[in-house]
Amino acid sequence: MEPFIVSARKYRPETFEDVVGQRAITQTLENAIKSNHLAQALLFTGPRGVGKTTCARILAKKINQESGDYSPDEDFAFNIFELDAASNNGVEHIRSIVDQVRIPPQVGKYKVYIIDEVHMLSNAAFNAFLKTLEEPPSHAIFILATTEKHKIIPTILSRCQIFDFKRITVGAMRDHLKRIAQQEGINAEEEALQIIAQKADGALRDSLSIFDRVVSFSGKDLTVQAVTENLNVLDRDTYFKVTDLILDGDIPNLLVTYDEILAKGFDGHHFISVLQAILGTSWFVKMSALYSFWN
């Protein structure tokens, strides 16, 4: 039996065109490479699972491909160095990079250093990195990635060209999941994919993980019922029922239904926030008061 590869790895983008929901950034990077205006220190920041490390790897490969004579069979992987700052955050790890960066690449024009979760570096490591980041050798490019830009010291930020990655929209995520489902031969209802995209909360990697989990549960037929059951989310019929009770002013049955929702383990605040989107702010205030009274 072949080993299973999760969708987040199997369908990881290989080119900028494959990156979902970050067109402004990928277009800027492509133009910067073509016009030779690429900064030597870049900072990719944004929420988890939106493509920061993926774009860093694509950029690292593309830099050498665009820098001169390039054979499609040529591999510049040995020019790319990745450091996970979450587990290598000491000053000795940065000093090792500083020592390496002085040596020019043997093949290609650039050596690219990708430092993931850079906010985890210690203050001593940041300080050891400052001079190299300010005046790097002409053959070195640094790409820093982080989910928490505010934890990076200002002297580092001032030396980087900053790219703010945005959360992936529900529509873009749903369309991406639809393409993957077609490639995998899975018959997926569009509304089921919509629920998965909403549950992922802007993180494409999370949506792919949820997709794999639900497919393991439901098989080749991905239905709304299977998704709501596996993700433990309220189905639309419950919201329709509650909305009808509110519009009819049937408070006793509304309280009974609300109690049943809480008894199933659903979060009252989340339920009310969805109702706010359905009914408007005035009803949200009333339901918030109901939640406070009921608890």
Rank of each mutant, 00 (worst) to 15 (best):
S96T: 11
E30V: 08
E74P: 04
V233P: 06
E229V: 01
S96P: 08
T132K: 00
K34M: 12
Y70W: 14
V285G: 12
R213L: 12
I80S: 02
K178V: 06
F266M: 10
A181V: 02
P47D: 10
G265R: 11
S96C: 09
I162V: 13
L245Q: 05
A200D: 08
I168K: 03
E92V: 04
H139T: 09
D221R: 12
R174H: 14
I141D: 01
A192R: 03
G185F: 03
V101I: 07
A86V: 08
I162P: 07
A24R: 15
V285N: 15
D237M: 10
D237I: 05
L83A: 06
L245K: 03
S138M: 13
R95Y: 07
N230H: 13
Y291C: 09
V107W: 08
L254Q: 04
A32D: 01
L247S: 14
S138T: 12
K52G: 03
H37S: 15
V20R: 02
Q106Y: 10
Y258R: 13
G249D: 04
T155H: 11
E66V: 08
Q100N: 13
I210R: 09
E135I: 00
L245F: 05
N31F: 06
E134A: 02
N295A: 09
H150T: 07
F44Y: 09
L208M: 12
L222W: 04
A128Y: 04
L204M: 11
F217Y: 14
D221L: 07
F266W: 12
A24F: 12
S71I: 06
N64A: 00
T26N: 14
D248G: 06
T169H: 12
F78V: 13
A172F: 08
T257K: 10
F142N: 01
P13G: 03
G249C: 03
I33H: 00
I97Y: 04
K131N: 05
F44W: 08
S71H: 14
I103C: 11
V215D: 10
V233Y: 13
I25H: 02
L157K: 05
L208H: 11
L290M: 13
L59E: 00
K34H: 09
I251N: 14
S96A: 15
N127D: 14
F4C: 09
N88M: 11
F240I: 14
K241W: 07
L279C: 08
P13C: 03
D75N: 14
H139Y: 06
A41G: 12
H150A: 06
K151C: 04
Y110L: 00
T281M: 14
C160D: 05
C55M: 08
A125F: 01
V101W: 02
E135N: 00
G46S: 09
P3K: 15
E135W: 00
L38A: 07
F76T: 00
V107F: 05
E260I: 06
K10P: 03
P154Y: 07
D206C: 07
K34E: 15
Q27Y: 10
A200Y: 02
V50G: 01
K111S: 02
F240Q: 15
E189S: 04
Q225T: 11
L204W: 06
A192S: 08
D18V: 01
P13N: 07
V214D: 06
R205Y: 03
E14I: 01
M120T: 04
A197T: 02
F81T: 15
F44V: 03
